[in-house]
């Protein structure tokens, strides 16, 4: 077989695989939109569930998920970004740092239910936060910390060293170099990492199961010590343990659709921010 035919065959295989992957994605999306679009209405988005979860809306769950996104972002973003700056800009490449890096990666691979149980034992029980937005946010924050650290490190590493040496050679300190040159350059990519982790946070069910999520709670939270409903857990509840599964099925699809749209909006915001921030 000559070069040209083998290349053509390879490309055909790549193309089929590519179409296959994208196809699955569109199929899932289409399936959810097709089944869920019917229940989406202003009422659905702004009212609590009613009639044993077979009617009404999902407003408390939307609010709850947004609270958890905000709470865990506050926990994970500063912590993750700062530790990534430390490990990639300051700490060098010694054995301890290598070990920490491996452990961070391992932490990212731990099943989320373990984070949930850990959060329950530490935040809910030992520290006495109870089932609350605080406990849930801390748990979700820990969960996405490795992802935030990882992506921030990658973003920082992508900046060529010539910018660092250039700045240091002008008498700038390391901190000034990081603040004035490296972080602004890495920012668009850091944002991307943060958005990815928000996607992860908003979809996780296991970590919030024992730390914050309420089965049914039409009242909106008034403090960080309140429980909330959350979209993924609500979806799980009405899909497997509602009072009338058949009747609540469309609501489940609607909930899934809302969850996907929230993640989509986050992504759009991210790419908008990226373009906005990329001045040069």
């Amino acid at each position: 077989m000559n070069k040209k035919t083998s290349q053509q065959i390879a490309f055909i295989i790549f193309r089929i695989l590519g179409i296959f992957v994208v196809g699955i994605l569109f199929w899932i999306l289409g399936f959810i939109i097709y089944n869920g679009i019917g229940v989406i209405s202003w009422k659905f988005l702004t009212e609590p569930p009613s009639e044993g979860m077979t009617g009404g809306g999902i407003f408390p769950a939307i609010v709850g998920t947004l609270c958890l996104i905000a709470g865990s972002s506050i926990v994970a973003f500063p912590l993750g970004i700062l530790s990534a700056i430390y490990t990639s800009e300051y700490a060098g490449n010694g054995y301890i740092i290598k070990f920490i890096r491996i452990m961070t990666n391992n932490l990212g691979g731990i099943p989320s239910i373990i984070f949930g149980l850990f959060g329950m034992s530490l935040f809910v029980n030992t520290l006495g936060f109870g089932d609350s937005i605080l406990a849930g946010s801390l748990t979700l924050g820990l969960l996405c910390l490795p992802l935030v650290i990882r992506t921030t490190e990658e973003a920082l590493k992508a900046i060529p060293d010539s910018f660092r040496t250039g700045s240091l050679a002008l008498g700038a300190s390391k901190l000034q170099t990081v603040n004035r040159i490296i972080l602004p350059m890495a920012f668009p990519n850091i944002i991307t990492g943060l958005i990815l982790s928000i996607g992860r946070i908003s979809g996780e069910t296991a970590p919030i199961l024992f730390t914050v999520a309420a089965y049914f709670l039409p009242k909106l939270p008034t403090s960080i010590f309140d429980q909330v409903m959350a979209l993924p857990y609500h979806l799980y509840v009405i899909a497997v343990s509602g009072t009338d599964l058949e009747a609540s099925r469309p609501i489940a699809y609607g909930t899934a659709l809302v969850l996907i749209v929230i993640v989509l909006i986050m992504n759009l915001m991210a790419s908008f921010l990226r373009r906005k921030l990329k001045k040069y």
Binding site: P160, T165, G166, A169, L170, G171, A172, Q176, R180, K279
Partner: peptide, 25 residues
């Protein structure tokens, strides 16, 4: 001062590039 093999201006305006050393000082 040092000038490197590959030009390495910062991703900033021409003015800010030259002002950089003064600003960090």
């Amino acid at each position: 001062g040092m000038v490197f093999q590959k030009p390495n201006p910062f991703p900033q305006s021409i003015f800010e590039n030259v002002a950089y050393g003064l600003r960090v000082d």
